[in-house]
Every structure is written in structure tokens, then in C-alpha cells.
Design a protein around this nucleic acid. Sequence first.
RNA 1: CGGGACGUAGUUCAGCCUGGUAGAGCGCUUGCAUGGGGUGCAAGAAGUCGGAGGUUCAAAUCCUCUCGUCCCGACCA
Length: 507
Amino acid sequence: MALKNLRENSYPDWYQNVVAAADMAEVSSSPGCMVIKPWGYGIWERIQRMLDEKIKETNHENCYFPLFIPLSYFQKEAEHVEGFAKEMAIVTHSRLSMEDGKLVPASPLDEPLIVRPTSETIIADSFSKWVHSYRDLPVLINQWANVVRWEMRPRLFLRTREFLWQEGHTAHATFDEAEKEAETMLNVYEDLCVNDMAMPVIKGKKPEYDKFPGAVTTYCIEAMMQDGRSLQAGTSHFLGQNFAKSADIKFINTNNEPEYAYTTSWGVSTRLIGGLIMTHADDEGMCVPPKLAPQQVIIIPIIKDKSKAAEITAYAEKLRDALKSQIFAGEKVRVRFDNRPKEAVDKMWEWTRKGAPLIVEVGAKDLEKNAVMFRNRIHINQDGWKNFEDVDVFIATVAEKLQTIQDEMLARAKARLDGNIVTDIKTAAEFEAYFANNNVYLDNGGKAPKVAFVRGKWCGDEATLDKLKEMRLTIRCIPFDQSGSEGECLLSGKKGATLDVIYARSY
RNA sequence: CGGGACGUAGUUCAGCCUGGUAGAGCGCUUGCAUGGGGUGCAAGAAGUCGGAGGUUCAAAUCCUCUCGUCCCGACCA
């Protein structure tokens, strides 16, 4: 029996159903916020660990800046102010007092504090104190933090008022070095998404109108969800000297002249988990790529005859310990022996909905044959879901099996992305016809709208943005691999457009 | 923040129109049977009906306000 809400009926309902069925998160009583439950947080911890390693490999160090940012700091960078003059949490009082039996805010602050929506301004302030000479550069730091944006329409993992992320901030002596840094970190994100999350992405930069407020260039990676909508999975900004000028990050260069530093910032958030769900989950629940799975192998004892319970338990524990000594992707295999007092069949389905890659069932028959029965989550209801194997062979090949699953998940996701980028729309008329209704299907049978990405020309004129909005589309990015050819702009119909862009509906 | 739907047991929901003893499925607890693809039978526990005010002899039900959730939109990681 699959989930109550299937993908083909209602994608949003299905999404929430997966989050609940996999027990990853739930809506909190605190409005707009989520409670990330152990399985969901475990996935986040895996993302953190893998990304943190990559961040450190590229010479960045972690540190921590305040949650509260004085309002005036926010006001320093003109574009930043405008771009971020949106819903934010503002601290205006410093205590509560009791009046008529009710708690009311008291002691107004001289200057309100903003609960950080992002930390460019407060970090730039520190950088201005740290940087005096070209010898102090580059400054390469990162922080793991929570941020708050007062979203009006929250969705678990994809958009919540408070979310967890990492934000890297760097300062450099030259334009080129900073620009290269922004690209390097975009590549780090791509590596994380592709090789660890099995979620292929398109790399590119945002059009001018869609840049981060205050950025010179915003680079991004875009992933395709199963409904054909695009999810911005990560961004990396080259900020030029904009923030350096407003925060006065100045240094003496090698020519003994004062110069403003060049800064970057880059981040990914718990939104990646939403992307992971919409990339890999199916109508039976979540599927977690082995590298990200908090538990990669689940062992469930099957005890029919209670007199054999001790024997089966001992067998399972021995198997657990042997598996734990195996190495997959440079780490010990993560194994859980699930001996909770529950029905074996319930445990099996629970872990299936959570998306643990391998579920092993051990019972009396296995003891006799010195074997195991294991299920491969991503082959559910197909050949290869249920497998029998000699226990020693299983132990010896568990890392190999996990790698195969990881590879297969990437291959599936990649096939979906590659197979659903429409490239043969060459005129504005064809383009309009293609999106004439919401019922453009990627595959047959589905009732929910699934719209492919269209890769085509854009003239770059901002007058085309109205048309875009009308069609409920967005320009996801200007991909790095430009063809350089000329053609008709799919929005304006103008000839001689040279930019290749990705048009898609988005999250 | 605009448009729509909705808040009743842990959960999914019925009951509301036409006011009069608080209901069901799943889940939970116990027992027996079962057990390698989502168990069966029996018994049991569990809700000041989102909150506040109003109408009434009487409110889950009618009225007002409020808070929250979901969907669509705008906005965004």
C-alpha cells in the first residue's frame, strides 16, 4: 500500500505526505517554523559533515557571528537595503513586564536589532577591522547558522521562517581572485549535490534582475524536481567592492595605495533536503542516497519461535558488528539493529518509508543457511527488491552495494534532468504554444502538471519580464555552457538574441 | 499579504444545514492467535469540539472577533 497521496494526483500533498511518512519533520506550534525530527536532522548532519569537509579542503575556516544585527548596519549598502526591505524579525524590546496579569514588552531598544536574514553586513563590519594590508588577505570564513526570513507561506524544508544553513564570506585583494572564489564554491556545491546527494544540477548565473541584492554576479545551481519544476539548490555571489565600500573594508595594496577589498558570499540551506525528497522519493516514501543516509543498513530480526530469539539476536548483533567494520565512501558503514518490540513487518515498512537504502531481515532460516535476506529500497516492487545472499558475501560486498545504489540514484536523476530539457523550441510562438496550459506532461498518465525546462534564447531586455510572469515562468539561469549562436528571443520574438537561458517553473 | 478551503481523540475525518448524553477508521494498551510484502479476533484507554466574546433554558452546531493550518497567487534559500 503506497502513500495516501500519490505524485500523479497532487505533488504538494505527496511531498508533505513523504515528509510525514519518513518522520523527517513536522510543522511546529511556533508559526511558520518546523521541527526537524531525528531522521531529517540526521540527513542534515550528513550534509553538514560532507560539505564542511569540502569547505575546509578549500582553505576556509569556521567561525560564528551574532544572530542580531543592528538596523543601521543593514542600511549601509543601498541595493542590499532595497532587496532586503522585506519581511524580517525585528527585536525592539529588551524585557517583559507584567501588567494586569499579562506579559507585555518593556524597555524599548535605542536601535532595533534585526534577526539575521543573512550576515553580509555584520561580517563585513568585522572584516573591516581584520583587514589592513594585502598581507591580511584573503579572509576565508564560513559559519553554520540559523537565519530568519518572515515568510508568508511556509513549506517544510523548502521555505520556513527559520532555517538552517551555511554561509561563507570571503574578502580578497583582487577582482579576479574574488570572482574565482565565487566560482570555486559553486563547484563545491555542485560536487555536494551531484556526488553526495545524487542530485544533478545546472550551473549558471542569474540574470541581472534576479541577482542577490548588492551582488555584482550571482552564480547558482538549479536542480529539476520530479514534477519538472526547478529548485535553486545553492548560490554563490561575487559582491565586487560593494560591501567593502559600505563597510569600509580597506587595505594597503602592493603599490602602497589604499584599496577596497573584493568580497564574496555563498550558501546552501536545509532546503537541500526538500530537493532531496523531490528528487528521490517515490510513492512509497523517502529514498535516501547511501552517502547521506543516517543509517545505511537496517537489520530487522524475524522471530517466529520465541525460543530462538536469543540465537537470532546474537546472529543479528554479530552481523551488525561485522558490517560496521566495513568502509563505504571512506567511512564506517552505518548500521542499526532494530530490535524494538514491534512487529517485524511494521519495522520493515517504517524503514522503507524513511528510505534506508538496505533493509536486512534475519530469522531462523538464515541461521540455518548462514544467509541473509535483504531489500534494496530503490528497487521496491521490482526485481531486485528482495534478495538472498550468503552472510559473508553480504558483509564483504555491502560497500559495493551501497555504491551501486548511490550510482543508480544519480543515474536516474540525471536521466530525468537530461531527458526533460526541451531544446527545440526556436520561436516565441512555439514557446507560447508549449506553455499554453499547465497540462504539459513530462510522462504519460500523470494528472498533475509536469513542465519540462526549456533551454532557449533570451534577448536580455527587462521588458520581457512581464511576459514571463504572465506565463508563470522564471528564467532559472544563464548556463555556463553557452552555445554562442543567434536566434529568436522566446519572450520578445526579437531576432539576434544570443543568450541561452533555462526557462522553467520554480519553487 | 490577496483569493479559496478548513480547525472535533495521537492521526484522518463524520456530526453542524434543522441547537438537546461526544462518534468512527487507523494508531495506542492488554490478551490470544499470527509473523520473511503492509496481520486476525477480543477487550480497554483516550477529546474542557483551536481561542475569546455573544444569542439561548441549552452551543461542536447559530453570530462576531481572533489565532492557526492547507491550497492558489505575490515574495523568497
